[in-house]
Structures are given as structure tokens and as C-alpha cells.
Design a protein around this nucleic acid. Structure first.
Lengths: 232, 232
DNA sequence: CGACGCATTGACAGGGCTCAATTTAAGTGG
DNA sequence: CCACTTAAATTGAGCCCTGTCAATGCGTCG
């Protein structure tokens, strides 16, 4: 007998079950399967058939797309409570992006047949999914606009502030971005190169705004960076 | 008595009603309201409260975002059969983008309360909407990746091909993109400037790939442009 | 300690943006 | 129907941001 009820609160908190009768929550949960991934493992890759609809229980996922000849673009980071691979709901879709575990990750997965039954049975579930994807569109559109209209330094400032808010940790010196985070990844996230990122970060380091170390950054003066991000 | 049944076939064709019992189609349709717009009119603008969920019956919409100090980015063009303003389904959202009528436009609009009732009553409707928004995400992600990884000429080629497929009209000379379409708009769509677009288009004109006129473009040699888009 | 991977920095070039000057085409009103 | 106005498009010149390439430095881990 499957028992996923230990994850009830995280799913409820995410809003996915809003509007679904409470006595059904555990039933829906138990029709899914929990899967674990180790740091760096691929959850799915571009080209794989989409078979499972996935909900992040613990850890972070990096969602990226690969361009011919290697250039990578990071679509977004998934946090606990986020859902992905919703394409699995529909026909014979293949993934167009790749998801990688950042740190240890636990996911809840519903297979195609199950998620389709669930959505038909619980309309609020479909509405909540819709809600999530709309938010995603907004986020993507914002970043799209940034890519069109802002230069690298501004985009980098925005990215760092966003990541700081979502995953930063306070220390005596400032806010530490604590998961492994290379220049390359920052570049892929902001649509530039690791060289440019490195140059900008070291200039910020000289101003005393940040402390830049190997795969970690401490933000000392968030205000200065915010000012920069909002300058135009 | 409202009677929108003249629009039945266009909505059915779009797939929005897939899975909904056929005898309900007209009923759903008649709970919406048809609205018309003249060329250039704004359907909604950034900051307006989202009150109606909109389905394009006739004509085209341009969906764009404005950056501080005027730089504009075009998120996408909406064709007959597309749906937008789905945010209206949820809470007190405000639009973050602007939609403008390109040519004469007829829309079907359902107000917030109605669309919420409909989605709860007809789960397939919510699933179909979800389907549409997922496709949108894929499209946006593709263009996001393009912006990160491709140079302007390639992006422009892809954009032109995409628009050609969606809204082109065959003529004796080639495929005409028939709605008013300035260099500025192509620039806003591909994330560049009208000068760069102009230069590229006139070079393509010299190769005989396209015929470039004021606010209209005829694609004479789609293959050449496809080759360019897929080069490297 | 040596090796590997990440990060930094410099030199250089070029794609594409900016600005300005024309040219071309579409309206408009007399 | 033509002169006039206005907006779109073209084109050239200059330059700056940012990507590319190469060399070097440094942290981490086996």
C-alpha cells in the first residue's frame, strides 16, 4: 500500500489542491509515486517522451534548453511546490527542455493516464495547474523583455537579486547564495558568457557590493545592486 | 436573446471544446459576448485589471510588453482560434502586457465569474486551456533560447518563417504577409532595432529571397530562408 | 603534491546599436 | 489630380558593448 501522506502539507501549501475537497487530497497523493534524484542527475532530458507530470517536494531543479552547438539557456529554477512536465498531460509530446537535480531532490510523479483521469475528475486541479503555467508565462515574458531591452549588467543585477530572494541565506557579512552556482550558470541564466559575468562580478567586488568566491557569492550591499537594476 | 452560434465552427476547430459534450457547445458560446475592435485599437493595456477571458474569432492581435523608456518587445501574435487574457480566470490580476488589434478584430469574451463557472463545470475546457498555455510556454522558451544563442539574422529568418506559416497568404509571387507589418514591429519581435532589420531585409531582397515593400513582405524563396535559419 | 576545473584578466575584433541624412511611399486636402 | 505633409524605410559612419580566444591564477580534491 502506497502512503505519500507525509508530503500532504507541502502539496497543500503549494496551492495545487485549492478547491479540491480535503478528503480527496490523500487519495490524489497516493496515486502518484515519489522519486528521488542525486545532485547532478537528470530528471528528464530534451527528446525524452513526457510520461510523468512532476511536483517538486524537496530540493531544486534546473530547467534548461540546449541550442545546437552547445549554448545553453536556463529557463528557470524550480523550487519545492513547483510543478513541471505538465506536457505529460497531452498526447505523445516529447520534452523540449532538460531538468537537472541541483542537490538532493524528491519529486512526486503522476503518470499520463493517472493525471488525465485526475484532471477530468477534479476540475479545480486543472484550474490550479493553469494558474501555475500562467505565472510561468509571466516570468518568462519578463525575462524575455529583459533580454530585449536591458544590457548584461542590468540583467545580471536582476538575476542575482531574484536568486538572493528565493534562495539566499543571511550571514554576518551579507546574504550568501549558498548552492553551487558557477559563473557559467549565471551566464546561461542571463543570456551572456561566463567571461562577461566574471568581469562584472569582479567590478562589483571592487566597489564592495559583493564578495565573489568560487561557486558562491555573498551580497554585501543589496541596495547598490537594486539601484543599478532600476537605473535606466 | 444572445446568439453566437455563427461562431460555433471556429471555436470547435480551435480545439477549445474538445471533450465537451457537443450539445453544450452553443450554451457555452452564448454565455460569452462578442466584441469588435478597429485596426490599432487597444484590446487591453498593461496595468488594466483582467476582467475578460478572450478568444480570437476574426483578425489578429499583437501582444507586447513595454520596457521603461520605450523599448517594446512583442510577446506573440494571436491568430483566430487563439485564446488570451486567461489571467482573468484568477484573482485580482492586472495585465502585464498590452494587446492591440491588427486589422479588424472580433473577439469572444467571457467575464471572470462566467469563465470560472464554466471551467469548474467542464473540466475538459480547463484542460484545453492548459494545453494552449503549455504551447505558449514552449513557443516563448524557444524564442528565449533564440535570443540567447542566435544572432539577429537567424532570429529574423525564424520569425519570418513562423509568421509566414501562421498568417501568410499565397500569391503568384510567393507568400505574402498581408497585415501591416513594419520594420519596427519585426525588430520588436526579434529583439533588435529597425535599422538592423532594414539592412538584413534589403540584403535578402538583393539575393531575391524576398520582396520588401512598405509594411508588407513577400517571401519568394522560403527554402533559402529556411536554410539560413538552420545553418550551422 | 599534482591535477583538474573554475575563475580572472587582457587583447582584440566584430556584430549590432546609435545618430543623422536621405529617399520612398502613402495619405490628404484643395 | 497634383502639391504637400507625414511616416516608413534605407543607408552610411562611428563606436561601444560584449563575445572570442588565450594565458594565467587559484581552490579543491584525490
Amino acid at each position: 500500500m502506497i502512503d505519500n501522506t507525509q508530503y500532504l502539507s507541502i502539496v497543500q501549501q503549494s496551492g495545487l489542491f485549492n478547491g479540491v475537497p480535503e478528503n480527496q487530497h490523500a487519495i490524489i497523493l497516493n496515486r502518484g509515486k515519489v522519486i528521488s534524484f542525486k545532485p547532478g542527475e537528470l530528471v528528464f532530458r530534451s527528446g525524452d517522451p513526457a510520461r510523468l507530470c512532476l511536483f517538486v517536494l524537496e530540493g531544486y531543479l534546473k530547467h534548461s534548453m540546449m541550442h545546437l552547438q552547445g549554448k545553453e539557456a536556463i529557463c528557470r529554477y524550480l523550487n519545492p511546490g513547483d510543478i513541471t512536465a505538465v506536457s505529460a498531460v497531452f498526447g505523445e509530446k516529447k520534452f523540449r527542455s532538460t531538468a537537472e537535480a541541483v542537490g538532493d531532490v524528491k519529486l512526486m510523479g503522476w503518470d499520463k493516464a493517472t493525471i488525465n483521469e485526475l484532471l477530468l475528475e477534479y476540475a479545480p486541479l486543472a484550474i490550479n495547474l493553469l494558474h501555475g503555467t500562467i505565472n510561468l508565462i509571466h516570468e518568462l515574458q519578463d525575462r524575455f523583455l529583459g533580454l530585449c531591452a536591458e544590457q548584461v549588467e542590468i540583467r545580471l543585477a536582476n538575476a542575482l537579486l531574484r536568486i538572493m530572494k528565493e534562495s539566499g541565506r543571511k550571514t554576518s557579512e551579507g546574504v550568501l547564495i549558498n548552492f553551487r552556482f558557477s559563473r557559467q550558470e549565471l551566464a546561461d541564466y542571463t543570456g551572456t558568457t561566463l567571461y562577461t559575468v566574471s568581469r562584472i562580478l569582479s567590478s562589483w567586488g571592487k566597489y564592495g557590493w559583493i564578495k565573489s568566491e568560487r561557486e558562491r557569492i555573498t551580497i554585501i550591499d543589496p541596495l547598490a545592486i537594486t539601484r543599478l537594476a532600476e537605473s535606466d
